[in-house]
C-alpha cells in the first residue's frame, strides 16, 4: 500500500502599496521603499507598489536622502494587498561642510559671488560664496553629498563628500577660469 505524500500548496503572493508624503502634503518622487530584498521607488505622485511578497510579519522602510527614514511593521497574509502610507519629515542634522573657493591659477579666493549647490533628490541646497570666497552649509544630516560650484567666469567644479553626525568637513575648491563665449545676439 502506498500513500501519497501530501505537499502544501505554495503561498499566494501578496502586495503592499501606498503613498509617501512629506509634511506639507506633497508626494515624494523617487523615494526608496524596501521590504526585505524587494524594493522599489515611488512614482512622481508618490505611489509605490511592492509586489510578490511572501506573507508574514514584514518590515517596510521608506527613505530618501534629505528625509528621515521611516519603518513600519505589518502582518501580511496570503494574497492580501495592504495599503501603507508613509509621512516623511525633512532630516535635520548636525554635520556641516564649509570652505573657500580659489582661482586655480592665482590661488586667490574667488571673491565675486556665485553659488555652491548641494545636489539632493528633490530640492537642492544652495549656498552663496561671500566676498572672501567663503561658503558654509550647516545642519546637514550625516551622509554623502555631491557639491557643485556655479561661478560666472569659472568652469563648474564638483566634489563628493561624506560627513558624519556632528562632523564639520572643510573642502576647498580650486576653480579654473572658463571664458564662455557669449553668442552674439541676432
Amino acid at each position: 500500500m502506498t500513500t501519497e505524500k501530501l505537499t502544501s500548496p505554495p503561498k499566494a503572493m501578496s502586495r503592499i502599496s501606498g503613498y509617501i508624503y512629506v509634511s506639507d502634503g506633497s508626494r515624494l518622487k523617487g523615494a526608496k521603499v524596501a521590504c526585505g530584498e524587494t524594493e522599489t521607488r515611488t512614482l512622481a505622485d508618490g505611489y509605490f507598489v511592492l509586489d510578490a511578497l511572501v506573507p508574514g510579519d514584514l518590515d517596510v522602510t521608506a527613505n530618501l536622502q534629505g528625509f528621515k527614514p521611516e519603518s513600519k511593521t505589518i502582518s501580511l497574509h496570503e494574497g492580501e494587498e495592504i495599503n501603507l502610507d508613509f509621512h516623511l519629515s525633512k532630516a535635520k542634522g548636525t554635520a556641516g561642510i564649509h570652505g573657500y573657493v580659489y582661482d586655480a591659477k592665482s590661488k586667490k579666493t574667488v571673491g565675486k559671488g556665485g553659488s555652491i549647490i548641494i545636489v539632493l533628490p528633490i530640492s537642492n541646497k544652495y549656498g552663496s560664496i561671500d566676498k572672501d570666497g567663503y561658503y558654509e552649509f550647516t545642519n546637514l544630516p550625516a551622509g554623502t553629498y555631491k557639491i557643485l560650484t556655479s561661478i560666472q567666469g569659472y568652469a563648474d567644479n564638483n566634489a563628493t563628500l561624506k560627513v558624519n553626525d556632528a562632523e564639520t568637513k572643510e573642502h576647498n575648491f580650486f576653480c579654473k577660469t572658463q571664458n564662455i563665449e557669449e553668442p552674439p545676439w541676432g
Binding site: 508626494r27 518622487k29 512622481a44 505622485d45 553659488s115 530640492s123 537642492n124 552663496s128 556655479s150
Partner: peptide, 30 residues
Amino acid sequence: QLIGEKVKDALEDYPYKHGDDYYYNGKDNP
C-alpha cells in the same frame, strides 16, 4: 496638480536674495 507640486518642491530652497539684492539666478534654476 502634480506638475505644480514638483515645481514647488524643486524651487523650495532656491534663493531669491543675493546679499541685499532680490533676483533669481537664471542658470542654477532647477
